[in-house]
Computed example of a mutant assay.
Amino acid sequence: MLKLGIVGCGAIGTEICKAVDEGSIESELVAVYDRNKEHLSSLQSSLLNTEPVVYELQEMVKHVDLVVESASQNAAYEIVTTALESSCDVMVMSVGAFVDKNFREKVTDIAKQKGCKIYLPSGALVGLDGVKTASCNNIYSVSLTSRKPPESLEGAPYIVENNIDLENLKNETVVFEGSAAEAVKMFPANVNVAATLSLSGIGFDETSVKIIADPGAEKNIHNVTVKGNFGEFTTRVENLPSPTNPKTSYLASLSAIATLKNIVNPLQVGT
């Protein structure tokens, strides 16, 4: 049975742990870790059937087969590298870390050397199967428009650096328009979807992103349009925020669970 270690016990990490605890994923929850002791305490009290050990990363990798990173973009660099160097597979939720080409190439090389896998769930997006399929030939353009409640963007570096007053917005406002590379760096907790989309298609520099702060929005809405030799398609998803973290779409948690279920399932469906 697959032995799991979870680093980061916020909204997504907690949902994964609960899914394992309830028997939804055929795996063993061996260890958890979070620097936030309240997150750890809350998680442990919510589990009914499992009692994972609290291990820091260096110890965790000695006891698990796969490490789940659900901490932060900054933490992902150390977590992914350490897991792979210890011959553990790794699933990464903070996909924005992969905007760093040097890091991306480094961990890919380590994974090859160690015979490990790096799993990047589709997160809050739909239609990545189509993007991956289309990329087998020629894609002309990929664009992402994300519409979010203003409060979900609070604290993003781009918002802070440009002194954008989200609290007093009366109408929908385009707060960012540019490449996915810039979007991921400037909104590290908000647009991991831009990173996943870029890695599936034509890259960070060529993928265009628009972020709209909408006071009337109750959901995180993502529209993706892809054009290429195959033709054209558009996807739209309206995500409810996670009950415990408005910056995270609930679908992102479900995507993580689905990825783990797929890893342990001998029957693989879809691209």
Rank of each mutant, 00 (worst) to 15 (best):
M1Q: 01
G5A: 01
G5Q: 02
A11H: 14
G13L: 08
E15L: 13
I16C: 11
V20A: 04
S24T: 07
L29H: 08
V32A: 04
R35P: 11
K37E: 15
H39Y: 08
S41Q: 10
S42E: 05
S42Q: 07
Y55T: 15
E56G: 15
E56W: 14
E56D: 15
L57D: 10
L57T: 08
D65Q: 15
D65C: 15
V67Q: 12
E78A: 01
E78T: 02
E78P: 00
L84V: 14
V90F: 11
N102G: 03
F103K: 12
G115C: 00
L120K: 02
P121K: 01
G123R: 06
A124H: 11
L125V: 08
V126R: 08
L128Y: 13
D129H: 12
G130P: 09
V131C: 08
K132F: 00
N137R: 03
N138R: 01
Y140I: 06
S143I: 07
L144P: 02
T145V: 11
T145Q: 07
T145A: 02
S146L: 14
R147M: 05
P150N: 07
E151F: 07
E154S: 07
G155E: 04
Y158F: 13
V160R: 13
V160L: 12
N168D: 09
K170Q: 13
K170F: 09
E172F: 09
E172L: 08
S179V: 10
A180V: 05
E182K: 14
A183V: 11
F187H: 03
A189F: 11
N190R: 14
V191W: 07
V191R: 09
V191E: 06
N192Q: 12
N192D: 12
V193K: 08
S198E: 09
I202K: 09
T207D: 06
I212H: 02
D214V: 03
P215Y: 08
K219C: 06
T225G: 04
L240N: 09
P241S: 14
T248Q: 00
S249G: 07
S249Y: 01
L251D: 00
A252Q: 03
A252L: 00
T259S: 05
T259I: 01
Q268K: 15
V269N: 10
G270P: 10
T271M: 13
